[in-house]
């Protein structure tokens, strides 16, 4: 799919997202090629706005963060913090006229655990709905 290759998704995910081991990661990289860059984090609460900004500045059209389900964060508040950081970063990119949709966040559900591959598909679908980033064009 040519349209996929025109976009790059930076996907940050919590290491507790189901089916997110090394093999599943390799499968995804094979499937999407240069359209995806995967970053596993020990806890989404460790992500800082600077990580998201640098991804958007340097290569990504869209950034997504996949957290563990609310209430089950092993560091108790990590995903809540991630949400605040995402809001802050969205405000920054909005201030220079970049669409806030370029930073996505998916909070995992405790009841319906979703695999990394399914999350990646959903994030990629939303990525393709946006035009290529004006930062890189």
């Amino acid at each position: 799919m040519t349209s996929e290759q025109k976009r790059t998704l930076a996907l940050y995910y919590c290491q507790n997202v189901p089916a997110s081991g090394e093999r599943e990661r390799q499968d995804l990289e094979e499937k999407y090629g240069r359209g995806i860059r995967l970053f596993t984090v020990p806890c989404s609460g460790r992500l800082e706005p600077i990580h998201l900004l640098l991804a958007l500045e340097e290569f990504a059209d869209v950034v997504f963060i996949i957290t563990c389900p609310e209430g089950v964060c092993r560091y108790s508040e990590g995903n809540k913090r991630a949400k605040k950081r995402v809001e802050k970063t969205r405000a920054i990119i909005a201030s220079i006229g970049l669409e806030v949709e370029r930073i996505g966040m998916i909070i995992g559900s405790k009841e319906n655990p979703i695999s990394l591959a399914d999350h990646a598909r959903a994030a990629m679908e939303r990525t393709l709905k946006l035009p290529p980033s004006p930062v890189h064009n």
Binding site: I93, I96, P134
Partner: peptide, 8 residues
């Protein structure tokens, strides 16, 4: 942020 704004 400023670099991105400049590029845009």
């Amino acid at each position: 942020t400023l670099r991105m704004a400049a590029k845009m």
